[in-house]
Amino acid sequence: MPLASHDGRDSVAGRRAGEPPGVTGPAPYAALSPDLVLAAVDAAGSWSDGRLLALNSYENRVFQVGLEDGGFVVAKFYRPDRWPDAAIEEEHAFALELAAAELPVVAPLVVEGRTLLRREGYRYALYPRRGGRAPSLESPDQLEWLGRLLGRMHAVGSRDRFHARGTLDRATMIDAPMRAALGSDLLPAHLFDAYRNAAGRVDDAVARRFEAVGPLRHLRLHGDCHPGNVLWTDAGPHFVDLDDARMGPAVQDLWMLAGDDAAMDALLEGYAQFRDFDPLELALVPALRAMRQVHYAGWIAERWHDPAFPTAFPFAAEARWWEQHIADLHDIADDLMDL
């Protein structure tokens, strides 16, 4: 994952000068108290009434905050050092661009001309609260609706490119997480070589698949378009959480919503109403799925110092989980080679 520069930090737990303990280092959210969250909301001009609910999020910290006028905002505190400021601002600009194109995307609130705010060393943004339920991915009508929206989203995404957010590629989805796992105490020492061999086989197989498909058009993507990031209401769906937005092939925003070929067909039927889709990209789906599998284990390993992760993912501390993960990676590599 891209990291901000380490220039200008003091020597105490990797903090920048003037930052309180806990903003970076082993427990980056240790100083993020409820009082700080409420004060950050107040400082942005949305006066809180003390109601605070932590929402399900591991990479960042996200809170629903009640307001004195009876409404709510969602406050998102970004994980220190994951993205540089320019990358977060690109994400925000993309969300606002999509919203301006009348796409149902939850975009950050603009506060005195800014979307990226700061409070006591933390970077944060405020969002309007938007509820909803999970989409029904067994419904061809809902899948076609989502396909139309993704076609429109990609039409906007193809107008420009990201410069600070990088590209969905083997470097970010395989190499970096593989190094994180190999450098972590989570991976049992006796499985070190076995994991490196299995992940390396997946990397080789993915590289061959991308080479076989050939050059692709890359565009600005949602990047993590799984069902949990789509909320359905009586008025239809809306998309949330562009935190993993990157450059990449269009199929990345489709495959996680498609449980089978029929579902993909329904998505593409809607998609084609607003944008052409290169069918060659469908051959990338097994490779993209493999990249996500490698990334998942590396992500847990890289974040294990965060106290939320051992609680949420206790299985990752067990050798048998890594043994199964290694076996799964070999199966994935075999399947990719056979396709």
Score class of each variant (00 low, 15 high):
139 S>I: 02
85 D>Q: 15
137 L>F: 07
145 W>L: 08
159 R>T: 14
86 A>K: 06
135 P>C: 09
138 E>S: 15
148 R>T: 13
132 G>H: 06
154 H>R: 11
125 A>S: 14
131 G>I: 10
94 F>W: 08
130 R>I: 07
144 E>I: 05
118 R>D: 11
120 E>C: 13
136 S>I: 03
129 R>C: 08
142 Q>E: 15
158 S>P: 00
128 P>K: 04
152 R>S: 06
92 H>Y: 09
117 L>I: 04
87 A>Q: 02
155 A>I: 04
111 V>K: 07
151 G>N: 07
151 G>C: 11
86 A>H: 07
121 G>C: 14
100 A>L: 12
132 G>F: 06
127 Y>F: 15
120 E>Y: 09
91 E>I: 03
130 R>Q: 13
159 R>Q: 14
87 A>M: 06
113 G>V: 10
140 P>V: 03
143 L>H: 04
153 M>T: 09
148 R>G: 13
133 R>Y: 10
88 I>K: 00
148 R>K: 14
97 E>L: 15
131 G>T: 12
152 R>E: 08
150 L>R: 01
126 L>C: 09
108 P>N: 07
94 F>S: 03
160 D>Q: 13
149 L>S: 01
91 E>T: 01
117 L>R: 00
90 E>A: 06
138 E>P: 07
144 E>M: 11
107 A>D: 05
156 V>I: 14
105 V>Y: 03
105 V>G: 05
132 G>E: 05
89 E>V: 12
98 L>I: 07
130 R>V: 10
150 L>F: 03
158 S>R: 12
145 W>Q: 09
155 A>H: 06
114 R>L: 11
132 G>N: 08
117 L>C: 03
97 E>F: 05
153 M>R: 01
118 R>F: 10
97 E>S: 14
147 G>Q: 07
128 P>Y: 04
140 P>L: 07
127 Y>W: 12
109 L>K: 10
93 A>E: 12
140 P>Y: 06
149 L>G: 00
109 L>I: 14
140 P>R: 05
156 V>N: 05
102 E>V: 12
148 R>F: 09
155 A>Q: 11
90 E>M: 09
87 A>D: 00
105 V>K: 02
122 Y>K: 02
118 R>Y: 09
98 L>T: 03
112 E>Q: 15
102 E>A: 15
142 Q>S: 08
87 A>H: 01
120 E>N: 15
